[in-house]
């Protein structure tokens, strides 16, 4: 069986399992939508003439959604599978270890795409989100999303070895995600944050995902309001790429297939 077949087999099984668990489907799909409903309803004034707050928030919500399905979901779900012996069982078969990760990547990619689409559709239909016209912006949307979700997925798999138990996973992972959301400018305009907070956030991928996506949804004139006075797309690619490398290295070095020593 070739690598592509095997990845797809794993991915299909992961998707089947995900779709049958109604809670996770509803939560994963609805959470970003609910957030945009709340935020766009509270902040219903304009940032600048003709530019609504939604135009700003949507980038943060997309980035948050990608982080939720990539980082948060995997960092919580994998310890559960580890504790239930699913990983140990797979490790006892001739399946190459990477196939397990490939299945997770397929799962995350499909959910991320579906959830982002839903989010953007709601924002367009109910809050007048204006989609970019230039093909360049769509290209930016595509690569920032793909690179961002890849970094999150790899970090999620790597982070899954941190919690000691499945029950502890939610407690360990949720605060990390929440703190990153606040400090990365998801809920508050990034430039309003204290400078030290901006600098801490700049270490992590979420800040750069948000920034890259703002370049897609905000007019070019807003670039001047960014900390560096520009969208810094080159640096966005660099930081996200670096996180992919770091995440992959951590996955390969620290991944635990069982709780045994």
């Amino acid at each position: 069986m070739n690598a592509l077949d095997l990845s797809w087999r794993r991915g299909r099984l992961e998707l089947t399992q995900f779709l049958r668990s109604r809670e996770s489907v509803v939560f994963t799909m609805a959470f970003p939508v609910i957030m945009i409903l709340i935020f766009s309803s509270i902040f219903d004034w304009d940032l600048a003439p003709g530019v609504t707050f939604t135009q700003y928030f949507v980038s943060g919500m997309i980035a948050t959604g990608l982080m939720t399905v990539g980082f948060q979901a995997l960092a919580i779900q994998i310890p559960i599978e580890r504790e239930r012996g699913v990983l140990k069982r797979l490790r006892g078969t001739p399946m190459p270890p990477w196939a397990y990760f490939a299945g997770k990547v397929v799962l995350v990619a499909v959910i991320a795409a579906a959830e982002t689409l839903l989010l953007v559709a709601v924002a367009v239909l109910f809050f007048g989100l204006r989609l970019p016209a230039a093909p360049g912006h769509w290209w930016t949307l595509a690569w920032v999303s793909v690179l961002g979700v890849t970094a999150c997925t790899l970090c999620g798999i790597a982070f899954s070895s941190v919690p000691r138990s499945a029950r502890g996973a939610t407690a360990v992972v949720t605060p990390v995600a929440l703190v990153l959301q606040f400090t990365s400018g998801v809920f508050v305009e990034f430039t309003r944050l204290p400078e030290w907070m901006q600098q801490v956030a700049a270490v992590f991928p979420l800040k750069w995902m948000c920034q890259g996506l703002r370049a897609v949804f905000l007019p070019d004139s807003f670039a001047a309001l960014e900390p560096a006075g520009s969208w810094e797309l080159g640096r966005v690619a660099l930081v996200l790429g670096a996180w992919c490398v770091v995440g992959l290295a951590l996955c390969l070095r620290t991944f635990r297939w069982s709780l045994d020593r």
């Binding site: 099984l13 399992q17 049958r20 668990s21 239930r84 012996g85 699913v86």
Partner: peptide
Amino acid sequence: STGEFDDL
């Protein structure tokens, strides 16, 4: 230990 596969 028995493996669990939930909803499959």
